[in-house]
Design a protein around this nucleic acid. Structure first.
Lengths: 190, 190
DNA sequence: CGACTGACCAAAAATAAAATTTAGTCAATT
DNA sequence: AATTGACTAAATTTTATTTTTGGTCAGTCG
């Protein structure tokens, strides 16, 4: 049996998207990294966008699966949030793709990168909103607009993981977690 | 006595910078709005940048004066913060210049707009940091990195006043204040 | 035979050249 | 002496040209 060329390609493309972003990743480059002819890529993926989509799908699935597992656990809202931050910051692969795409959107505004960012953002915001709503029903969280609160939590996460680095030394994972919890826990909890 | 042409020019330029941003404001346009010849502008300001600087200075002074007045009042940290938000959101002129410049930086990356944003950001962050440090000494605020906390508060403010609007209907002032306080007050206070 | 390849092409992106706009000047005017 | 607006050099925008890249397919190889 011959080697699994599709896996090779996905691996190579993921690596390149994370490192260089969507636009600066060329199909020639992917074929080189994967050690396959360029034509071979097109036997598995109709277009560059479809290849990107599949990688995004995989990342979204991983994120969803992590989030569902955490949501199912019998924990307080704040503990779930803490665990989610932990997962995202410890297992950085998807996080890194997201950060790279966000940077690409900011720097050159690639439309595909924007869609990727939006997709992952949507997933995260939706999950946060639902958790906040549930926690509100259980009386764990003060009454507020769950959409706005989810947005604020997400922006805080972005502020600490990406914006802060523009002017300062990056914060380490524990500092990030500490400060996120500091703001959210007693501020938003009854 | 002839009319105060310098004031006229400053007024016209401020109006134009707020409405169109730094780059899209031309000196011809300013002279038209101010009803003076273009040469007259250059008897008061050496360059377009200097004109911009003076307007920025004025905005910074106003901000500083508001902040100092609030800081002097015998209030809790959170009440001061609440009053600051009130001032900024109610008397929007400086806020609007800041928002316009932030947008210009995001859209076309004008370097002068970036400097303007940075300047006002620096003032605000510095003020917030000092207030947080003092409040920490007074035992009003939990121990934390005051710079990071100031940064987080500032980013939350930006998230609600500008980022939210990209995908949603703008939030009204009271919603913004409510949610800012919700996150900060009990979250950051002992 | 059929999975695989890489030279090839049209379309998109980057770069260069031409045309337009604008910051800043200064001789003329009030 | 203060003010002006036509003027110029420099910067920006638009257009033309060159280069790069996504996608194809005739041919190779196992």
């Amino acid at each position: 049996m011959s080697i699994d060329r599709k896996a090779l390609i996905l691996q190579a493309a993921t690596k390149s998207f994370v490192q260089f972003g969507y636009k600066a990743t060329t199909m020639d480059q992917v074929s080189k990294i994967a050690n396959v002819g360029k034509g071979t890529i097109y036997t598995f993926f109709k277009t560059k966008e479809e290849l990107f989509e599949e990688i995004l799908d995989k990342a979204s699935q991983e994120l969803t699966s992590v989030m569902n597992r955490l949501a199912a656990e019998d924990n307080t809202f704040i503990q779930k949030l803490f665990n989610l931050l932990d997962s995202i910051l410890e297992f950085r692969s998807d996080h890194e793709l997201f950060v790279k795409l966000a940077q690409e959107v900011r720097d050159i505004g690639t439309v595909q990168a924007l869609e990727g960012v939006k997709r992952m953002e949507e997933y995260a915001l939706d999950f946060l909103r639902r958790q906040i709503e549930q926690a509100m029903e259980r009386g764990e969280v003060k009454p507020c607009d769950a959409s706005v609160a989810a947005f604020m939590i997400f922006r805080l996460y972005l502020a600490l993981t990406t914006e802060w680095n523009k002017e300062h030394e990056p914060l380490d994972k524990n500092r990030i977690k500490e400060h996120m919890i500091l703001f959210i826990s007693n501020g938003i909890l009854v």
